[in-house]
Computed example of a mutant assay.
Amino acid sequence: MRKIFYLKSCSTCIRILKEWNAPESVSLQNIKSEPLTENQIEELKSLSGSYEALFSRRSTLYKTLNLKEKNLTETDYKYYLLDHYTVLKRPVLVLDDKIFIGNQKEVVAEAKKALHE
């Protein structure tokens, strides 16, 4: 798979997409209009090592549902990722067997380099 999972209404995602300038061989998936499937979540988990790695603790939903106070399991993370697109740490870039998750400066730079190798 060569794909970027992002949120079209997220200004950070849009800024990073422009910076990456991904080749046409990489498809885009706006997770609001085209939600993640269970198969996609499974594949992302296998590349990242856990559902937790894909989960954003900075999302509004995380704070609204007071999830910080709960002891979340991998099953919980999977449930929220499938049910609430906003909890995905964005953007997520998958290049074959590599995955880049989130908007940390180092991750964005590594992903950009990998996209243009």
Rank of each mutant, 00 (worst) to 15 (best):
R2F: 02
R2S: 06
R2I: 03
F5Q: 03
L7D: 12
L7K: 10
K8N: 12
K8C: 02
K8I: 06
C10N: 04
S11I: 02
T12C: 09
C13Y: 11
C13L: 06
C13T: 06
C13W: 09
L17I: 01
L17K: 05
S27C: 07
S27M: 08
K32R: 15
P35D: 00
E38Y: 04
E38L: 11
Q40L: 03
Q40G: 03
E42A: 07
E42M: 03
E43Y: 02
L44M: 12
K45N: 14
K45E: 15
K45M: 13
S46P: 03
L47P: 05
L47S: 05
L47E: 12
S48E: 01
G49R: 11
S50F: 05
Y51P: 09
E52R: 14
A53Q: 13
L54T: 04
F55P: 01
R57V: 08
R57N: 11
T60F: 11
L61K: 00
Y62R: 01
K63W: 06
T64E: 13
N66V: 03
L67S: 08
K68C: 00
E69A: 10
K70T: 00
K70W: 00
L72N: 08
E74F: 11
D76S: 09
Y80H: 06
L81M: 10
H84P: 05
Y85M: 10
V87D: 11
K89V: 12
P91Y: 13
V92Q: 15
V92G: 14
L93V: 04
L93M: 03
V94C: 09
L95A: 07
L95W: 10
D97V: 10
D97G: 04
K98R: 15
I101N: 13
I101F: 10
K105N: 13
V107K: 13
V108N: 08
A111M: 06
K112Y: 02
